[in-house]
Computed example of a mutant assay.
Amino acid sequence: MTTVKLISLLLVASLAIIIQPAISGDPDILTDFITPPNTNTIDGSFFTFSGFGILVNGTQLPDKFTVVKATMAQFPALNGQSVSYATLLFPNGTTNPPHTHPRAAELLFVLDGELNVGFVDTAGKLYTQNLQVGDMFVFPKGLVHFQYNAGAGYAIALSAFGSANAGTVSLPGTLFATGIDDVVLAKSFKTDVGVIQKLKAGLAVKP
């Protein structure tokens, strides 16, 4: 094989690699389900999750925004199944701050109350909607989004994800509670270090 042909083949192979679409999601599995290590017996209880009982058993609902998750961390049977849920509990006036899910889209269904929701696309355009009971809204994969209960009563929503571990990246927490240098943040937000330090203090974990 000549040097020219070899170089041509290498260029074609490199181009094929470069133009492959970027995919971030759960890998396919080659078994019906994944059994946790050191587990000898699997029965129906392994495939059962009771953590959402708060919705139906009369438990006092929390007085601050709360997420009850059913991901593979809480429900190991989801490992490899590319699906998970979360229950979102919103007292009036509370918000689920801007965040992203890097590995899945989110399909939100309003069970009670009302929510103002929105997301921002990669062109910087904001899409918002006021949702009522029975409404469903999709947050595209990886985009920054939020939910806010502006109503007078409690709001409850159920979210489905196309991943057993969608991940959550909170923008306030990521920016102001992870140790990024104050000067970097001040320059990024075109403000001064004093403002950044106040924001960080507001997000600090209370003892």
Score class of each variant (00 low, 15 high):
154 Y>G: 11
207 P>G: 12
95 T>S: 06
18 I>D: 03
87 T>Y: 10
170 S>R: 00
206 K>L: 13
152 A>T: 14
51 G>C: 12
90 F>Q: 05
68 V>Y: 04
180 I>S: 03
40 N>R: 13
15 L>M: 10
99 H>M: 07
29 I>W: 01
80 G>W: 03
188 S>P: 06
43 D>W: 09
51 G>S: 08
76 P>C: 11
172 P>T: 04
10 L>S: 15
182 D>P: 01
156 I>S: 06
102 P>V: 08
178 T>M: 06
185 L>C: 02
127 Y>F: 15
105 A>N: 05
191 T>L: 07
175 L>R: 08
15 L>S: 09
54 I>L: 11
49 F>A: 04
178 T>A: 03
89 L>R: 01
24 S>N: 14
60 Q>I: 13
56 V>D: 13
42 I>F: 13
194 G>C: 09
120 V>E: 04
138 V>H: 10
13 A>L: 15
38 N>G: 11
198 K>F: 07
41 T>C: 15
53 G>S: 10
72 M>E: 10
44 G>P: 06
85 Y>D: 01
102 P>G: 07
32 D>L: 11
16 A>E: 03
137 F>R: 00
154 Y>W: 13
4 V>M: 13
121 D>S: 10
60 Q>T: 14
144 V>G: 05
170 S>K: 03
143 L>Q: 08
48 T>R: 13
67 V>Q: 10
180 I>F: 07
126 L>N: 06
87 T>S: 13
77 A>S: 10
131 L>P: 05
114 E>D: 15
187 K>Q: 15
168 T>M: 10
1 M>G: 11
41 T>V: 15
137 F>A: 00
154 Y>I: 15
61 L>Q: 08
66 T>E: 00
26 D>K: 05
21 P>I: 06
109 F>R: 03
89 L>K: 03
30 L>I: 14
139 F>S: 01
29 I>Y: 01
30 L>K: 11
122 T>G: 13
101 H>Y: 00
159 S>E: 00
